[in-house]
Design a binder for these strands. Structure first.
Lengths: 200, 200
DNA sequence: GACATATGTCTACAGTCGTTGACAAGTTCC
DNA sequence: GGAACTTGTCAACGACTGTAGACATATGTC
């Protein structure tokens, strides 16, 4: 189903195999639940013995946490207070001008969040990640009243849409280009309602 | 942690114990992942041998499906095209005039959906439930263009907010009554943006 | 009371899981 | 070439899971 991450025999190199395991783990966690991903599958796709995973990362939980780590991740980059709503809509619609592999990493990481959101063991890790890597950056860009509230609500919308689209695979059929256009317009309108300060 | 559903010894009564198992299952699935809920826990809280669960419901999957079934469930009852946005906001804010136990059942069922959304085995069942029990009723009330799309987007918002609040327990701190008020206003505005027909 | 049936329990199986410790095979350095 | 170290494999443990079949016990009927 999922193509092996690293088929070629790797010369002995701790850093490289560690990375291969991490990449394989990201791929799997982005497709399935925390509890439904086995260390044996991760190791298998990385071309490695399952025991190595435990030894390199300590535990499955630690591996999962590592999976979400990203040193230079700022997905609000380039967004100003005025373009926020459109920025969010683009984020969901997979547009914008971020380089492809960086974008893929971000998408995988968001998918990981969405898939394991209901898992008690992964929950604490996910909560932290959302707090520090997502909500705070959003709130920092926002001005005016209720920055925390608005950030949380906007991300809630993004999350709901993401689950609808990726996890549940429920999509209103948008056959024509006009349909897509109206969807995008409405999406921007919703994000605006969540993000913009109250005017009354 | 979770108090036993039925502590008293039950006289032998197939229908009653079946119901007790179902109630216990609902409680557990509303608090944890599909794979993290064991038949032994469900049976334990129902005061019953684990084997009985398999015998009464056939399989864990079938039990889960039964958990979501509700013969007279129409959570759009009383909503008109004009009051929709407020109806949704009230649904989330736990207001309205539905009787308490019926409301509790609905909330538990929604929590079940949210918690196991990432589980591959429960996924198909959840998808069906959302389609027939939620999206279609919403779309039926809506008029005008893009009824499916608007229904899906409104539910996505509801789902995102629900996960934020219940599963992730992330809430913008709303200390004062005015905070809550502004939250409610914004929520209604978001739902309106998702539900109302485009006017341009 | 005795039988038949419905209801519930007990034991155990086959499978999966994460993790560990002993061992093998490379690599590096003297 | 041999020692010291790193890197990877193997086998297995203990804990857990959903489920099935044999068994026990209560209920209902004659």
């Amino acid at each position: 189903m999922i193509p092996p991450v690293q088929a070629l025999p790797r010369s002995r190199n701790a850093a490289a195999t560690r990375e291969a395991i991490l990449v394989s783990a990201r791929k799997h966690f982005a497709r399935e639940n925390y509890e439904n991903v086995g260390l044996r599958e991760i190791a298998g796709d990385a071309g490695v013995d399952p025991a190595l995973v435990s030894r390199y990362f300590g535990s499955k939980e630690a591996l999962f946490r590592e999976t979400l780590r990203d040193d230079d991740k700022d997905f609000m980059e380039g967004a100003t207070r005025e373009t926020l709503a459109r920025h969010f809509a683009q984020l969901f619609l997979d547009e914008g001008d971020t380089p492809q592999d960086e974008r893929d990493l971000h998408i995988d990481q968001i998918l990981i969040l969405l898939h394991s959101i209901g898992s008690p063991k992964a929950g604490e890790i996910i909560r932290e990640t959302i707090d520090t890597d997502i909500l705070e950056p959003i709130a920092r860009v926002l001005g005016g009243q209720d920055t925390e509230m608005r950030a949380a609500m906007a991300f809630a919308v993004l999350m709901g849409m993401g689950i609808m689209h990726n996890t549940l695979a429920i999509d209103p059929d948008m056959c024509s280009a006009e349909d897509t256009d109206r969807f995008e317009k409405r999406l921007t309108r919703i994000f605006a309602a969540a993000l913009e300060p109250m005017d009354d």
